[in-house]
Simulated scan of single mutants.
Amino acid sequence: MTKATQVTKTGDFGKRKSYIKRYWQLYALLSLPIAYFLIFRYGPMYGVQIAFKDFNLFQGINGSEWIGLEAFREVFAMNDFYITLRNTFMLNFLDLLVSFPAPIILAIMLYEIRNAWFKKISQTLLYIPHFISWVIIGGIVYQLFGTQSGMVNAVLQALGMDAIPFLTDKNSWLITYLFTGVWQSAGWGTILYLAALTGVNKELFEAADVDGASRMKKIWHITLPSIKPTIITLLILNLGKMVSIGFDRPYIIGNTAVREYSDVLSTFVYRIGLEAGQYTLATVVGLFQAVVGLVFILGSNYISKKVTGDGIL
């Protein structure tokens, strides 16, 4: 190494050290999310080996006996596993069809509103459901849509109409499940799209006005293309979650009458893991979800790049 090279490296190190010293507050803030991911995301990966062991709670991970792929064979031989896998795919796919476009439409509608106070009130009302616990939402759903005591059915019966089994008929339950999800998540999902819309060049709309374009044409030819990268990114991330599903929503809104649809992988893991104490089988299902989710993300990203030229990787 030449003397000139040593001087250059010493100078670069000094500059980096000075930069870190100057902006140490930013690095301190960055340490919090890094610590979060290390502890709660990367740390638990150590426990993945439970899927390949006959896990004993008292012996711990290291003391448990290796069994290889035996637990995988046991899980893949279960009929309940395939039923819950089918339900997970079905609910996530229907959620994608119903819930994914909702925040896009809402964001465009809010963006088009010119009355500032009405826009702020609307945004606040739309954001609120996101902060309500699914336990509370479940109580609201049962109070509104219960067959015997629900408010909606009470009104229908008062009008001389038959009660609708919103929560006991599997098809009616499916509709209730989907639109409850839209109500809970659509408002919060508009935040990213509204942020993307703030970057749209206003001169494009002015030029469209000069050309006599209608509001719908401006939305179709200017607004939507401007937020296309955001839409594609969120779509790819949602496709990556096709085999994963939250526990709260299907467990709280579901019941034994609609178990044919409401029993999903997360409730399956809860039953075999926490209730039955079969931690190895529960870990196998979790690892399966993670691997398939990764395949979906990479596959959807590859297809998106080939078709639209945009992706996340």
Rank of each mutant, 00 (worst) to 15 (best):
K3Q: 08
K3G: 01
A4V: 10
A4I: 10
T5I: 03
T10V: 06
G11F: 15
D12M: 14
Y19M: 12
K21A: 11
W24G: 00
Y27E: 00
A28M: 12
L32S: 02
P33T: 04
F37D: 00
L38F: 12
I39S: 11
R41F: 11
R41Q: 12
Y42C: 05
G43L: 06
P44C: 02
K53E: 02
D54L: 05
L57W: 14
I61C: 07
N62G: 03
N62H: 04
N62E: 12
G68E: 08
G68D: 12
E70R: 15
E74R: 07
V75F: 05
F76R: 04
F81E: 00
T84A: 05
N87D: 04
T88S: 11
F89V: 14
N92Q: 13
F93A: 15
L94S: 13
L96R: 06
L96W: 05
I104W: 03
I113N: 03
N115Y: 07
A116M: 00
I121L: 05
S122E: 02
Q123T: 00
I128P: 02
P129H: 07
P129K: 07
W134H: 12
I136G: 04
G139I: 06
G139C: 07
V141L: 12
Q143R: 12
Q143F: 10
Q143L: 10
L144T: 01
F145C: 01
G146Y: 09
Q148H: 14
Q148V: 14
Q148W: 07
S149V: 08
V152H: 07
V152P: 02
L156S: 02
A158D: 02
L159I: 08
L159A: 13
G160L: 10
M161G: 06
P165T: 14
F166G: 06
F166V: 11
L167M: 12
N171D: 08
N171C: 00
S172Y: 13
I175Y: 15
T176H: 09
V182N: 03
S185H: 15
A186H: 11
W188Q: 09
W188F: 14
W188R: 08
T190E: 06
L192K: 04
L194I: 14
A196K: 01
G199R: 08
K202V: 13
K202N: 15
E203A: 07
A208V: 03
D209E: 07
G212W: 11
G212H: 06
M216V: 13
M216G: 11
M216S: 13
W220P: 08
H221C: 09
T223A: 04
P225I: 09
P225C: 08
K228I: 00
K228W: 11
K228D: 01
P229K: 10
I232E: 03
L234H: 04
L235D: 01
L237F: 14
L237A: 10
V243M: 03
S244G: 06
P250N: 09
I253D: 10
T256I: 13
A257M: 14
R259I: 01
T267Q: 05
T267R: 06
F268A: 02
V269F: 05
E275K: 13
A276D: 13
A276N: 14
G277D: 05
L281A: 03
V285T: 01
G286C: 06
L287D: 02
V292H: 01
G293C: 11
G293D: 07
F296R: 08
N301H: 10
Y302A: 12
K306R: 08
K306M: 01
V307F: 07
T308Y: 10
G311H: 08
I312P: 15
